Amino acid sequence: MGASLSRSFSDQAAPHHVCRTVTAAEELEEHLRIRRSVFVAEQSLFEQTDQDEFDRDPSVHHVLAFADGVPAGTVRLYRYPAPDGERLWKGDRLAVLPEYRHLWLGGPLVRYAVETAAAAGGARMIAYVQLGNVSFFRRLGWSKVGGPVAYVGVPHQQMSIDLT
C-alpha cells in the first residue's frame, strides 16, 4: 500500500496573508467582485450592486486581503465629514469570501483599516456592523455607540475606535 498523499491540518503551512490598498484597475475589480459576492449574492443586502458615491471618490481606500496571493476579502475606508471638524474616518464593506472565512482575515482587514486611517491623521474611526459582528469588533478594541439602527433593512450597531 502506498503512502497517503494527504496531510493533517497541523502539517500544512499556514497561508500567507497580506492586506493592502488597491493600486490597479484589476485589483479594484476584484475588490468590487468580492463585495458583490458577499453583499448581493450571499446576503441579499443589495439587489444589483452595493456600490455608491464613495466608490467614485478617488480619495477612498479600497483594500484587498490576499490569502497566498488570492484575493479573499475587502474593506473600504475614507475620511468622513464630521460637523464639529473632528478628523473622523469611516470603515465599511468588510467582506470575506465564505471559502476563506476559516482563515480569520477579518481581523487583519480591520487592523489595516485602523492603521491606515491613523497614519492619514484620523482621530477616530466609525463603522456600522451587523449585530453578529459586534463582539468581534469589541475584541479588536472598538466600542459600541448608541443602540442598533436599521441599514438596508438589517440591524447594525455603530462602533467607534480612537485612532490617536
Rank of each mutant, 00 (worst) to 15 (best):
L77C: 15
P58G: 05
D92S: 15
P71V: 07
K90E: 14
G73R: 02
L94S: 09
L94I: 12
R93T: 06
G85F: 03
L77Y: 15
W89V: 01
Q51I: 01
R93G: 09
D55A: 02
V60I: 10
Y78W: 15
R87H: 14
V60C: 08
V70N: 09
Y80T: 07
K90W: 09
A67K: 04
H62T: 02
D84T: 12
P71I: 06
P58K: 04
T74D: 03
A95W: 05
D68S: 13
P58Q: 00
D84H: 07
D84V: 07
K90N: 10
G91Q: 11
H62Y: 06
D55N: 02
G85T: 00
D92M: 08
Y78D: 05
P71D: 07
V63P: 04
A65D: 07
E53T: 02
R76K: 13
G91P: 06
R79K: 14
W89S: 05
V60W: 06
K90F: 12
F66G: 12
G69N: 08
E53A: 12
Y80R: 08
R76F: 08
P71N: 03
Y80I: 00
G85P: 01
D55C: 02
D52Q: 00
E86S: 13
P81T: 11
R93I: 02
Y78C: 10
H62W: 04
R76H: 10
P83C: 07
P71C: 10
A95Y: 07
Y78N: 09
R93N: 08
K90L: 10
F66P: 11
A67T: 14
R56F: 10
P71S: 09
R56M: 03
V60D: 01
Q51G: 00
V63K: 02
D57C: 04
Y78K: 10
V63A: 03
A67E: 11
D92P: 07
A72N: 05
D68L: 08
W89C: 05
A95E: 04
V70H: 13
G69A: 11
W89H: 13
P81K: 10
A67N: 09
G91K: 01
L94T: 05
R56N: 08
G85K: 02
P58L: 02
V70T: 15
D52R: 00
K90G: 06
A67Y: 12
R79D: 08
R79Y: 12
A65P: 03
G85I: 00
A72R: 03
Y80K: 13
P83M: 09
Y78Q: 13
V70Y: 10
Y78E: 11
P81E: 11
H61E: 09
A65Y: 12
A65F: 14
Y78V: 07
A72I: 02
A95V: 05
R79S: 14
P81G: 13
A72L: 04
P83E: 13
V63Y: 07
R93W: 10
D52G: 05
D57P: 02
V70D: 06
F66S: 09
P81F: 15
F66V: 07
A65N: 04
R93P: 06
G73P: 05
P81H: 15
D57R: 01
L94Y: 13
R93H: 12
